[in-house]
Simulated assay, not measured.
Amino acid sequence: MTSKPDADARLLDAHDLALAALAEITPASTVGPAAGYLAEEDGSVSLRFENRLAGYPGWFWTVTVARVEGEEPTVLEVELLPGDGALLAPEWVPWAERLAEYRAHQVELAEAAAAAGDDVVPGEDELAAEEDEDLDDDDLDDDDDDGEADILHAGDLDGVDIDELDDAGADDEESDESEDDDADALDEDAGEVDEEE
């Protein structure tokens, strides 16, 4: 069993130095009171401060300080590190329970709004704004449809004359019919030759 190294008292008291280092990377409002320390094997000390930065519950601002014999303490590292359990997901709550909590909260908000004399239920403004956006999108879709209809009804599509295509198709049909007639005539001639033999 290894014992923890004894921490240098001057390093333990270097809170002002640690706070000054933190001030260089984060606003003072995100740093809470001192939250202990960790003595490292190499003689350095990691001073911890509570974190008030949103989105990082259970994390700590950590400033590692060290001292060479005869010198003042100096900062080695400044970082935001997770505390015990900070990286674990919270206990799972079934959807039905979460939905019930959400609905109860909406009822509370509606009651509070009614008590304050507000006619608008919280959330209605957002819903109305979403409906307006949906209407705008529908208008845009209608405009797009009208534009497509204009293109489809035009006689000229992307530089191609549709009437010419129809005429070309008719010419192709006529040539196919004449080829069929020629083939039938050849078949008849061949049949007559076979009968004479």
Rank of each mutant, 00 (worst) to 15 (best):
residue 49 F to S: 03
residue 49 F to V: 01
residue 49 F to G: 02
residue 49 F to H: 12
residue 49 F to E: 10
residue 49 F to K: 11
residue 49 F to M: 05
residue 50 E to V: 06
residue 51 N to L: 05
residue 51 N to G: 06
residue 51 N to R: 14
residue 51 N to V: 11
residue 52 R to C: 02
residue 52 R to N: 04
residue 52 R to Q: 08
residue 52 R to D: 03
residue 52 R to A: 13
residue 52 R to I: 01
residue 52 R to P: 02
residue 52 R to G: 00
residue 53 L to S: 10
residue 53 L to M: 15
residue 53 L to R: 13
residue 53 L to A: 11
residue 53 L to D: 14
residue 54 A to R: 15
residue 54 A to T: 02
residue 54 A to I: 03
residue 55 G to E: 10
residue 55 G to W: 15
residue 55 G to A: 04
residue 55 G to R: 14
residue 55 G to M: 13
residue 55 G to P: 09
residue 56 Y to S: 08
residue 56 Y to F: 15
residue 56 Y to W: 15
residue 56 Y to E: 09
residue 57 P to A: 05
residue 57 P to S: 07
residue 58 G to H: 14
residue 58 G to Q: 14
residue 59 W to M: 00
residue 59 W to I: 07
residue 59 W to G: 05
residue 60 F to S: 06
residue 60 F to G: 02
residue 60 F to C: 00
residue 61 W to Q: 05
residue 61 W to C: 10
residue 62 T to G: 01
residue 62 T to S: 14
residue 62 T to I: 07
residue 62 T to F: 08
residue 62 T to V: 13
residue 62 T to D: 04
residue 62 T to Y: 04
residue 63 V to H: 04
residue 63 V to M: 06
residue 63 V to I: 12
residue 63 V to E: 06
residue 63 V to N: 09
residue 63 V to A: 12
residue 64 T to G: 00
residue 64 T to F: 06
residue 64 T to H: 03
residue 64 T to M: 10
residue 65 V to Y: 05
residue 65 V to T: 13
residue 65 V to S: 09
residue 65 V to H: 13
residue 65 V to W: 12
residue 66 A to I: 02
residue 66 A to E: 05
residue 66 A to D: 13
residue 66 A to P: 01
residue 66 A to G: 05
residue 67 R to T: 05
residue 67 R to S: 08
residue 68 V to C: 03
residue 68 V to L: 12
residue 68 V to K: 15
residue 68 V to T: 14
residue 69 E to W: 04
residue 69 E to Y: 04
residue 69 E to N: 10
residue 69 E to M: 06
residue 69 E to P: 07
residue 69 E to K: 11
residue 70 G to M: 04
residue 70 G to C: 11
residue 70 G to K: 12
residue 70 G to Y: 08
residue 71 E to F: 06
residue 71 E to N: 09
residue 71 E to W: 00
residue 72 E to G: 01
residue 72 E to I: 00
residue 72 E to S: 09
residue 72 E to C: 00
residue 73 P to Q: 08
residue 73 P to M: 07
residue 73 P to R: 02
residue 73 P to N: 08
residue 73 P to G: 07
residue 74 T to C: 01
residue 74 T to K: 05
residue 74 T to P: 01
residue 74 T to L: 09
residue 74 T to N: 00
residue 75 V to N: 09
residue 75 V to C: 08
residue 75 V to P: 00
residue 75 V to I: 06
residue 75 V to S: 02
residue 76 L to W: 09
residue 76 L to V: 00
residue 76 L to Y: 10
residue 76 L to A: 02
residue 76 L to I: 06
residue 76 L to C: 00
residue 76 L to P: 06
residue 76 L to K: 14
residue 77 E to T: 11
residue 77 E to H: 13
residue 77 E to Y: 11
residue 78 V to T: 14
residue 79 E to F: 06
residue 80 L to K: 10
residue 80 L to I: 11
residue 80 L to N: 08
residue 80 L to E: 05
residue 80 L to W: 12
residue 81 L to K: 14
residue 81 L to A: 12
residue 81 L to W: 09
residue 81 L to S: 08
residue 82 P to N: 05
residue 82 P to H: 01
residue 82 P to E: 00
residue 83 G to H: 10
residue 83 G to W: 09
residue 83 G to S: 04
residue 83 G to Y: 12
residue 84 D to Q: 12
residue 84 D to M: 08
residue 84 D to K: 13
residue 84 D to I: 10
residue 85 G to R: 07
residue 85 G to Y: 04
residue 85 G to S: 07
residue 85 G to E: 04
residue 85 G to D: 03
residue 86 A to S: 12
residue 86 A to T: 01
residue 87 L to P: 00
residue 87 L to G: 02
residue 87 L to V: 12
residue 87 L to E: 07
